[in-house]
Design a protein around this nucleic acid. Structure first.
Lengths: 240, 240
DNA sequence: CGCGATATTGATATAGATCAACTAATGTGG
DNA sequence: CCACATTAGTTGATCTATATCAATATCGCG
């Protein structure tokens, strides 16, 4: 089932079998996306929205010197560009960080779908607002946390989201972001990310190596990152 | 007309007279809000959404030591907590920065409204996604710009949004944010905001004083702040 | 008019940037 | 499947933007 991870583990995910079937029916072919491939460029008119089935993608913006700022990271079950449905154009680029599988829905089908199933429409709206809530948390992260807190927060958030779709085992999860990617997400240099990761590892909180992250002490890491997961609107059992 | 500034100056603002009337009819009483008053606290269940008619409000989050991070600033015509409609709870606080006038719509009326007028529902969705686009731009601002750029960007964005609702005359607009508020929006200290504002003034770009901001050289300020207004989805005539 | 909030200025400290070299992985074509 | 090329990670030395601390000045309100 293509939509099995959409809003999985989130509060309010009362999608009926009928709504689910209607959404499934609107989906196109499953497509692979190569690692590091850019899917959508800023300003492009978009005519469909894409559900991420597996892998990790990101949204980013470039500054004038071409330095990249990640504004979001996406995992399985996320609609990566549903914002493009009401907005029509995206204000940022969308790229794959690892090899991914995706499936798309044309916007005219989404229009029909939301008119025939207003509640499903609100669920989609809801999912874009979780993106907005994550954006706010990223603003907080950059504005108020030091380097160790920023990295800790990013890893805690990723852990919580991946756990909600069953992609964490014993605190360990796939983590295709390079130190450069993490730097671009956290407003730091890759050199400083390297030193900060070494410190977090030495504190026994987390190890990031070989495209995998292992959180040894979630509570400790959450303390450093001032991480409180309420903004993810997870079901109680999906938390931590 | 209460809704006259809602989505005013934005692309896609094709609200029909009928939609407009339906939205107006759902509105409650106009209420005043005192400056510095907190309207909604993080985690509270919300049952209505509020349209800002005049004044300036902000959304913010506190870190563990009680230091505040602004995550959004709102002006006349903005729905300040429409996110609470699909989300039910807010993940941040909402407060007035100046004396404001607001009007609210109960969420059950919004549900009826969006089911009877799917297109109006998409417009509301659209407006929350402009908030998300601004959030992304704030992430960029904090992650990639130095102090002068962050302040320049904030002032350019505010100028563009206020101009869209007719609240700028000759580059001058009401600006109730203190230097401390600007510091909390830009991830800086108020001391550094003070020094940076002095520098921007000395460069002939902008003057901020007496609760007013005057942009002397918009192009120059936009250059410092790497400001490109496409993310605001403004109509062409409302830009600059 | 006086008091609390806001703004200004100076001196010093520091987190993180920058520059540079080197090492360890990863992957690719022969 | 090896050899080499490319990318990613590590470490050290130095620099700088911004924080911090502290004192004073000014504004705006009751």
């Amino acid at each position: 089932m293509l939509t099995e991870n959409f809003l999985r583990g989130r509060r309010r995910q009362e999608m009926s079998a009928e709504e689910n079937a209607a959404l499934e029916a609107a989906m196109g072919e499953v497509r692979p996306v190569a690692a590091r491939q850019t899917l959508i460029r800023r300003g492009e008119r978009v005519y469909q929205s894409t559900l991420l089935l597996s892998g990790v993608m990101c949204r980013y913006m470039d500054d004038r010197q071409g330095e990249r700022q990640l504004v979001a990271v996406h995992f399985a079950g996320d609609f990566v560009d549903l914002h493009g449905f009401p907005l029509r154009h995206l204000d940022h680029d969308l790229a794959a960080l690892s090899a991914c599988r995706v499936v798309s829905v044309p916007h005219d089908r989404l229009t029909q779908l939301t008119e025939a199933h207003p509640h499903l429409g609100r669920l989609m709206w809801f999912s874009t607002l979780i993106d907005a809530a994550m954006h706010r948390e990223w603003i907080f992260r950059l504005g108020r946390l030091a380097a160790d807190g920023r990295i800790a927060h990013l890893l805690c958030e990723s852990h919580a989201r991946l756990a909600a779709v069953g992609l964490v085992q014993d605190g360990r999860f796939d983590w295709p972001l390079t130190q450069q990617d993490m730097a671009e997400a956290c407003g730091l240099t890759s050199v400083h990310v390297n030193r900060t990761l070494a410190k977090l590892r030495a504190s026994g909180l987390v190890t990031v190596a070989n495209r995998q992250a292992t959180i040894h002490d979630f509570a400790g890491l959450a303390l450093v990152g001032e991480f409180e997961p309420d903004y993810l609107y997870l079901e109680d059992e999906a938390k931590g």
